[in-house]
Design a protein around this nucleic acid. Sequence first.
DNA 1: CCGGTCGTCACCCGGGCGGGTGAACCTGGG
DNA 2: CCCAGGTTCACCCGCCCGGGTGACGACCGG
Lengths: 210, 210
Amino acid sequence: MVRQGFGALLDAQGDMTVVGSAADGSEVVDLVRKARPDVVLMDIRMPRVNGLDATRAVFAMPGDLHPKVIMLTTFDADEYVFAALQAGASGFLLKDASAEDLAGAVRVVAGGEALLAPSITQKLIADYVSRPTVRTPDVTVLGTLTDRELDVMRLVATGRSNAELAAELFLSEQTIKTHVSRILAKLGLRDRTQIVVTAYESGLVSAGGA
Amino acid sequence: MVRQGFGALLDAQGDMTVVGSAADGSEVVDLVRKARPDVVLMDIRMPRVNGLDATRAVFAMPGDLHPKVIMLTTFDADEYVFAALQAGASGFLLKDASAEDLAGAVRVVAGGEALLAPSITQKLIADYVSRPTVRTPDVTVLGTLTDRELDVMRLVATGRSNAELAAELFLSEQTIKTHVSRILAKLGLRDRTQIVVTAYESGLVSAGGA
DNA sequence: CCGGTCGTCACCCGGGCGGGTGAACCTGGG
DNA sequence: CCCAGGTTCACCCGCCCGGGTGACGACCGG
């Protein structure tokens, strides 16, 4: 019923056409493959395969042009917001949205932009600003290091021994020791554990290995 | 001119009243203190004091109820978005927004929620998902460690030597060595640099010291 | 052409680190 | 009551690490 209501609503807009409708998450991927829509309205809660997994499946499809996905939810369960956005969703609306909101959202995401319900925007911002700033490697501290020294520093920051670094870089262990010594001297550090700390704190490497 | 246009526009809405208008950022704080508005529309670019600093100043005012702030910008300069949100802004609109958009945004933020221009939402999401998830310390790995061992591990992760840890915790250096050895054994690690890496990667400690 | 920087490597030495073993004390639970 | 686990500490040993010094080739800029 809800699906049909939305479908009729959107079809009536004139500048968009409903090309299909799926009863649960497992049908979504097939339908997307066949109908090639520009935008998918995805319910978070669906029988069998939920909206999150269905979204991931849609973006895992071969081929490079995936449809935009707008998630729909009855209440703003913030724990799903991040997962949905991570999965590739471009929008997040509550089901109490008006017809104009819905149609507007479809137009926005079709245009490559994104749109979130205000209550979700508010939560997202709160979460966003609470996170540590993405560090661009600190030039003031690391600027004096040569490229090679930065290479070595990155590897030291993985917890490897000098011998392992030597093997990794096809160098003599002595060369590694020289580089490490230079790094310590230039940065005013004492031992390799402080190199690891500095590498993380400066943003040269970051948790998660990304 | 632009200010007057916006003012007239919003006054005409019926459910809101323009209580003041400032020529530059330095006037904003005074005006907010006197007029006590619910919502402030803030231009990013203003003579003398820019919108960012003015926003910070508004939220730095004594007293706990600050007005909501919507930032206005002519083009979506993403480098300011994070700073503005950090400063306390609840909204971010481009100046090409329609009158309804503007009035709607005022209502949304007045209601305690937030609203961003679609192009900015899109950038925010892209940035948001690219950030490492806020880690809650990984229980699966660290669960076998005792409280004391976790204490030691946190300190090891600051780059301190055993002797320094001993002084810090009022213990003998030997005790520290025992704890460190146990940590290494329990976590299957080799040396203290790997402890540092594990501490960061598991979220036991995180960059920025937060 | 030559001085400086960078990257590579070698030898030596001292010290901190990590491993092993053993032991004391305390607390809590069978 | 005694055993188990956590915390503390001691002694010994082997070794990797870090510091110092010196050297060689490559490259670049004056």
